[in-house]
Design a protein around this nucleic acid. Sequence first.
DNA 1: TGGTTATTTGTTTTT
DNA 2: CAAATAACCA
Length: 735
Amino acid sequence: MFSEPGINRSSMLDGLNAEQERAVTSTEGPVLVVAGPGSGKTRVLAHRVAYMIAERGVQPWHILAVTFTNKAAREMRERLERLIGPEQARKLTAGTFHSTCAKILRRDGHLIGIDPRFTIYDDGDQIDAVRQSLKALNLDPKQYGPRPILSRISKAKSQFIGPERFAEQTESYFEEIAARVYEQYQQILKRNRALDFDDLLGEALRLFEEQPDALRRYQEWYRYVLVDEYQDTNRVQYLLVKALTSEHRNLCVVGDPDQSIYGWRQADIRNILDFKRDFPEAAEVHLEMNYRSTSSIVEAADHVIRANTQRIQRRLRTENPPGDRIVIRESYDEGDEAQFVVSEIRRLARSGRYQFRDAAVMYRTNAQSRSIEEAFVRSEIPYQIIGSTRFYERAEIKDAMAILRLIANPSDTASLQRLIRNTRLGKGIGAKTMSQIDHWSYLTGQPAFVALAALDGRSHLAPPEVGSRAAKLLADVHATIARLHEESTRTHPSELFDRAVEMTGFAEQFRDTGDPELLDRWDNVLQLRNVLTSYDILPESEALQTFLEESALIADADTMDESGNQVTLITLHAAKGLEFPVVFLVGAEEGILPHARSMENDAQLEEERRLFYVGVTRTKERLYITHAFRRTVFGTPDVTVRSRFVDAIPKSLIESVNARPAARSALSNSGKPAAAAISRPVPVFKVGDRVFHDRFGDGRVAGVKPVSGDQEVTIDFKRHGQKRLLASLANLKLG
DNA sequence: TGGTTATTTGTTTTT
DNA sequence: CAAATAACCA
């Protein structure tokens, strides 16, 4: 039974320490909460909202809680349900910046000329738009990579700098180019009635600036605003929050500068300083007691982060027992590393102390998940990968989504192009025809769909010049989509989907085929359809729109499944905010963590250190840090150097360093090979020896270097060139 | 036009 | 190594 409202005071503040209580009860006016890892931040946030509602009589719909992921929003609501009941909890607004802004723009965007049917462009769509812009400007995409240009545009947008202002303040030739692309890019988005991720925030801010009445309405509505993960907000997000709260000034921000890991996404640490400037009356609360981790882990984390100079020095505290030591393990290569992780997890599971679900493997780059995943597949231990192989990035899903997006917003030319390229409906319409349409769009400023309408005799505009055969086909496309679009407001999404995949001939390409791969893909499409059915209960007029919006704005972390008993594989970035009893931090090597591309300056390096720190502090009990002697990156194997971050951990907290089981026994005394090493005998090599390797084949020893109880041999392989290998691990045979 | 193969290019991190 | 693009042929 849930507690009734009017709850006694103690239950809201029950079990909170003095600082936590202060964070919960300072409900009026601005508050800055600096919350260290594991300091009960999530709990405090939920209790604060509950307290406001139950004790201070604040109406739940007057509260806006902005979280970093939808999952965090969901968790907040769930906690709240337990505290004040589902009735009240449901009335709270909780969501990410992006989803909140999207909703605001659907409702009020028309005031600043935004079509409420707008499509949200994801990363891939954005790149396409940049490519198109380059083409329209006759610039060579080889010379100016779309990726760097897009990131420059995104950076400008995150600072609320529009194309005009950006063009005025360019500082290099590259920026000149970017400025021209930026302008063109915006035109393309506008023409397609599309907004990219940055626009969702930027346009919402523009709405607030240009329409004071609308802003006042939202200010009146959201009288209390909470922002979680404040250290990762950018300029525009700050300005949004500031605008929203400038009247009532009830703003509570929660963050931890030591966990700021999104600088590259224009998260601006100045937001904390500016908060104090713009809200000088703000109360400040520091949560420093760690309730999550063993003291070994807390101490290790503290030693790591201490090396950052751009930092308010403070120390982490815990009253937890020391627990297990941290295991640091050197593997031979990524395969061996993965194998170690798997067998260690199995060992822990067998011991009965942990389940699979208690463990997570964390890495710097998605690419690293490959070797780990292979080991899991072989071991038959259940696992889930967060991000990486994203469902919505599969070709067949993108195709199906394009159809749905097009139905919702026929002006979305990117989706139209996809449909024409990949379905029977577009068969016979080639690149030449499409570029004619493109040109027409450029001249008229109208989306491609209008060109199709003109060819179908449904527009007063003069149709583009295309071949008569193509004209007929395009008119057909127009008729089909127009019909589906018209039906969409009175048809359940799943039914609409069924009609759409038939009418476009999309379903057809998967049918009557024994090809197991095709069957597999169709299975994915059906999975998508299954997701759609859950939107059938919504009113037909908005169901499709809601689905598209939610699927565009899901974060990787949102897809985490906590119901099954499986190991989680996740990037360090996505792991922010999570915790696990057992954590494997893999690939702790220079060039990976810190990443090679983040070693140029101190600011970047310190962010990498924070990332490592985030990984360490996710751990409740057992932390493993692994690095490999040799790693194949890019198809080229290379000898690695252990990450400097590992070396910052005091030896007293470490259980074993450089555990190379076979290595120690390889050379027992005076360089003579041990008769029986634990696993296999390792020969002693000298220059000139002929050897055989399982993968590299025949070779000749070119050099030998003794390393702690082992040999590092350099070998010229006949087929694979020169390699450096560790004798004890390479399994070389004397030939 | 469309599908195939050869070459080439590149991997941070993500709403 | 493998995904993505370019050249190539049908």
